[in-house]
């Protein structure tokens, strides 16, 4: 009996290892060949950093990096403000209004990226806006807002409904009550919404592709380079992007581990 269980565990481990191999082999190969001295994708020509050097000498790539970071940071900030305020305002809407706007937010999230992309492109061209950094930013804010809102809403629901009114009774203005009572209480939701918005913006290709023309971000740049064929510089760029995401995730994971550790105490406090 115990042996059978052990055998099953071994099988489970092998299976999981194979799936992980499938998930990581392509990215590892990509990484290894980004250090390859020869341009070949199959033969090792010795260790070299030349693709990384050419990466940092390539003004197009550096420009795309600035665009990506600029759009990600700005869209995260703007969508966090709008999404958070939107969620706060929800609590004083009547049922019908609330359902209406929740449905609109859902529609925004459920629309396939390609349709969001072309519909925004139609809008921008219709309004005679030049497709570029600004239109891309508008588009990113649009697809980020619902994600922020849906990470803030549960925190608002958990909040003590009378805290806001108590603050007002004690003479706080609505703005004071908001800043001193509501915002600190829902801060975890706001932060995770902002991080989500930032990463979604970093990751986006399809919507950016349709809402910009000359100004490229990293995703659209990789796409146009990859269409022309393999280029080891893309390998180097991909490797750096992978490492950046990985470190971001590890930092976040540690942060959420800290939050988890804090939780029981907090829980105890509120139930007591």
């Amino acid at each position: 009996m115990k042996n059978a269980k052990k055998e099953r565990n071994v099988f489970a481990r092998i299976y999981l290892a194979l799936v992980l191999l499938f998930l990581y082999l392509p990215i590892l190969t990509l990484t290894v060949f980004s250090f390859n001295a020869s341009k070949s994708r199959a033969v090792w020509g010795g260790f070299s950093l030349k693709w990384y050097i050419s990466l940092f000498e390539d003004t197009d790539i550096l420009q795309a990096l600035y665009v990506t970071l600029g759009v990600a940071i700005l869209s995260a900030i703007i969508s966090t403000v709008i999404g958070t305020l939107g969620a706060i305002g929800f609590s004083s809407m009547n049922r019908g209004q609330k359902a209406l706007w929740l449905n609109v937010a859902n529609l925004n999230m459920l629309t396939p990226d390609i349709v969001t992309g072309v519909s925004l492109m139609i809008l921008f061209i219709f309004c005679k806006l030049n497709l570029g950094f600004f239109t891309m930013l508008l588009a990113h804010v649009s697809f980020n807002i619902p994600y922020v809102m849906f990470s803030v809403l549960p925190k608002l629901k958990q909040m003590n409904a009378h805290a806001y009114e108590a603050a007002m009774d004690l003479g706080a203005s609505p703005a004071q009550a908001l800043v001193k009572i509501v915002i600190p209480e829902i801060m975890p939701g706001i932060i995770s919404g902002a991080i989500l918005a930032f990463t979604l913006s970093l990751d986006d290709f399809v919507i950016s592709f349709f809402t910009t023309s000359e100004v490229q971000n990293l995703s659209t740049l990789i796409y146009s380079m990859a269409k022309l064929g393999i280029n080891p510089t893309i390998n180097a760029l991909s490797t750096l992007m992978f490492i950046a995401v990985l470190s971001l995730l590890l930092v976040l994971n540690r942060r959420s581990a800290l939050v988890e550790r804090k939780k029981p105490q907090h829980h105890h406090h509120t139930t007591a």
Binding site: T29, F33, A42, A226, S238, L249
Partner: peptide, 27 residues
């Protein structure tokens, strides 16, 4: 976490990785 990380990898990078493996000189 190892199974979640690939979700956060740029979608184009993931696709490009297969391009490099499957093209005629690919591994």
């Amino acid at each position: 976490l190892l199974f979640i990380i690939p979700m956060w990898m740029n979608f184009l990078v993931r696709t490009y990785a297969w391009l490099t493996l499957l093209e005629s000189n690919g591994l």
